[in-house]
């Protein structure tokens, strides 16, 4: 294709500069670190791909990556169906619509570290409402500072509480865009409620659901603040997700080279899985 109007390139320039300064250049410094060793004082030693090799062969990295995938997988499995169910049961007209929308939006308005702190206090066995209720009133042994299972249950519940709303709001936006005629036609065609969902609601929600799943994947895969404030990665390493491990290496141990290599691999995985999701979910549209 022949480009007629070469001046158009100048219009792209501001965006190019912006992207360069907020993404490409910082990213290149990480690449720079990832192939070198430093002990401070701006002294660097060339290491080539050594950090990458070590990392990909390290059990610690495998374990953190495994936990990360488990966390994200569980989050998606719970939040997407739950979000759709809540969106389907919300009223589509009337005075309750704004009430529902505001209630749904509330958890998302709370700062992430506050969410972590809230759930921390909420679940403490001695003074937390939930912790006290579980241990003393119901007699169930629940202490997320001691039991890995309790810790996992808590971080999952916290994330579901915090982010299911996103799936709900996006699905709801897809649902309200369906004209009444579709429901009327389905009624006349004798379609069951399941068929209405399968053939009308789900197809109309598909595009927003794609966005919802992508966002929830990326956010939960990169989660740091809430889990760090709640469990700090413990007990033991049981909730040390990839991001928490990365910060431990970078700031705890000050191993900037390996941390940089890990960042790049982390980024590559996020990008790759997002791309896979997107391609799989939109492959029908291309036809």
């Amino acid at each position: 294709m022949k480009t007629q109007y070469q001046k158009a390139w100048f219009f792209v320039l501001p965006v190019l500069l912006l992207v360069a300064f907020n993404a490409l250049i910082p990213m290149m410094t990480v690449v720079n670190y990832s192939v070198q060793e430093t002990f401070g004082n701006n002294v660097f030693f060339w290491e080539g791909l050594r950090w990458f090799e070590e990392l990909l062969n390290s059990d610690r990295f495998h374990a953190a990556l495994g936990r990360q995938f488990l966390f994200t997988g569980l989050i998606l499995l719970i939040e997407v169906p739950l979000g759709i169910i809540i969106a389907l049961s919300m009223p589509r007209k009337g005075p309750w619509v704004p009430v529902c929308l505001v209630l749904m939006a509330l958890p998302m308005l709370i700062p992430w570290n506050v969410v972590g702190a809230m759930w921390n206090i909420f679940t403490l066995p001695d003074i937390g409402l939930l912790g006290y209720l579980m241990n003393t009133t119901l007699g169930i042994d629940y202490d997320m500072t001691q039991s890995p299972f309790a810790a996992w249950a808590t971080i999952i519940t916290m994330d579901v509480w915090h982010w299911t709303s996103l799936v709900v709001l996006l699905s709801y936006a897809g649902l309200v865009s369906i004209p009444d005629a579709y429901y009327q036609a389905a009624k006349i065609d004798g379609a069951s409620p399941f068929k209405v969902f399968r053939y009308i609601q789900l197809p109309k929600m598909k595009q927003v659901l794609t966005i919802a799943i992508l966002l929830r994947f990326m956010d939960s895969f990169n989660i740091y603040t809430e889990v760090f404030v709640l469990t700090g990665g413990g007990p033991g390493n049981s909730t040390t997700l990839l991001s928490i491990d990365l910060v431990k290496i970078a700031l705890g141990q000050f191993d900037l080279g390996p941390a940089a290599a890990m960042s790049l691999i982390y980024f590559a995985i996020t990008l790759l899985v997002s791309w896979l999701f997107y391609t799989l979910m939109t492959k029908d549209d291309a036809k």
Binding site: A181, Q184, A185, I188, Y199, I200
Partner: peptide
Amino acid sequence: IAQVFQFPVIYDTM
């Protein structure tokens, strides 16, 4: 009964 609406109602995925 059968009804045809102002805007065509089609089951897109079928």
